[in-house]
Nucleic acid binder design. Structure first.
Lengths: 238, 238
DNA sequence: TATTTTAACTTGTATTTACAAGTAAAATGT
DNA sequence: ACATTTTACTTGTAAATACAAGTTAAAATA
């Protein structure tokens, strides 16, 4: 069923170092082992080690300094919805709950969609769902998602409670989110949004419209997200 | 004065291809020359070419597909303040004007600053300035900037009208913005903000707090930006 | 002692080589 | 005419090597 594609060595090292940083083995400001030491430790050559470090640097886990080394960068403490990793993993699964407002159903795309669609996407419709995400029982994200309906069997019958959409896509369909684009706006909460996010009407709400690319070239995931930023800020790197 | 540091070859190729894409030599959906062709064309080896393409890919100019090639990605048409490049270059200098609200002055950091400061930063104070940026004569960004006061002679007497802060830092002080982090919030406009952005009081405004890293390890640039997102959205890649 | 120089590290850039894996079109077979 | 296989291309991964350039601390020198 799930094809265990061989994982590149540089990716393995990336995962190991990333985990060590997240687990606190290497703390903020610490110097990572030098590239040559990592070569010896993990039995690979410098280009391979450098590819792993380069990815870590791009993801903001380390900063590299010529002549000095790779220094562990401080980790974001706020909600990292602006990063690729997705909300659930960013907050750490601890206090984040997901509530389904509308279970996933197969529908036609809305009349005037927020992003232009390819012909193939338009023909095959999309999977639609609405979720509410709460941090410490405070509603933070009201999330409307559209997933291109391209060979994702049984997705409408899956359990999405307390689980990341991205995780399900990855584990069950081998779909990885690669990146994407987004538009941001500050808007006044309408009746529906204020109801779900427990805000007064017309209170400012952060609105994100996102188009996410996947490892499947024809498959995109779209989200319209309304954020209650009264208590928490949305955090991002660039 | 300005030391002409040798520019790496992969960087040169990056600049050339980037310019070609921006100038429309390669259009959206076009296939770039293959890596081997680029090797021949520019007289360099594949790892060097790949380093240039990898940077282009990270910056969102191209998407790479194994077995196919590098495909030019569509360019953002909206305002790219979430990208590193800075506002001026992103919009294209055409209709964007900058108005100085408060000329740059050397002051002490505010009492409780939005980001933690290093000792060195705290001791030496900061350069403070306020700017208003207008697109088609509509005020879009109200921008409060703090620059660490580390060896930037005569900066308080420079002309910032219609010029990007980043450009001045780069051209006159060899300071390059490398990346950074930001927090986002939707807030109601207060008296001052509504005055400058020509909005009603309590209308939703997008608030960005940014910390930007530079090629000078001790130097950071901070901005508190209030955005009028009524007409335009803020665009970003991730 | 104080200063300068050197040496030993670090990461950055670049070449060369080899094979794996994905894509698409041409060649082949039925 | 259609389906399959082959082939030639593409990018991906990985090794081995070399030197440049920035940093730091030890060593040499004044």
């Amino acid at each position: 069923m799930v094809v265990p594609k061989t994982i590149p060595r540089y990716r393995k090292l990336y995962e190991v170092l990333r985990k060590h940083i997240l687990d606190g083995v290497y703390k903020e400001g610490d110097l990572l082992p030098s590239e040559n030491e990592l070569c010896q430790l993990y039995g690979m050559t410098r280009p391979t080690v450098r590819q792993a470090l380069s990815t870590l640097s791009n993801d903001g886990f380390i900063r590299k300094h010529q002549g000095k080394g790779s220094i562990v960068h401080h980790l974001p403490r706020a909600i990292g919805i602006l990063s690729v990793s997705g909300t659930t993993s960013a907050v750490g699964d601890r206090n984040l709950k997901t509530k389904i407002i509308k279970k996933p159903v197969l529908i036609q795309w809305p009349q005037s969609f927020m992003f232009p669609l390819s012909e193939l996407e338009n023909e095959s419709g999309c999977i639609y769902m609405e979720r509410l995400r709460l941090l410490d029982d405070v509603p933070i994200f009201y999330d409307i998602s559209y997933i291109g309906n391209i060979n994702l069997p049984r997705i409408t019958s899956r359990q999405f409670e307390n689980r990341s959409l991205f995780r399900i896509l990855r584990d069950h369909y081998r779909v990885e989110i690669k990146g994407g684009e987004q538009r941001l706006k500050a808007i006044p909460a309408n009746a529906r949004i204020s109801k779900f996010l427990k805000l007064h009407k017309n209170q400012p709400v952060l609105h994100l419209e996102r188009k996410m690319e996947t490892n499947n070239p024809g498959l995109f995931v779209y989200s319209s997200i309304f954020c209650n930023t009264e208590k928490y800020s949305i955090f991002g790197r660039f």
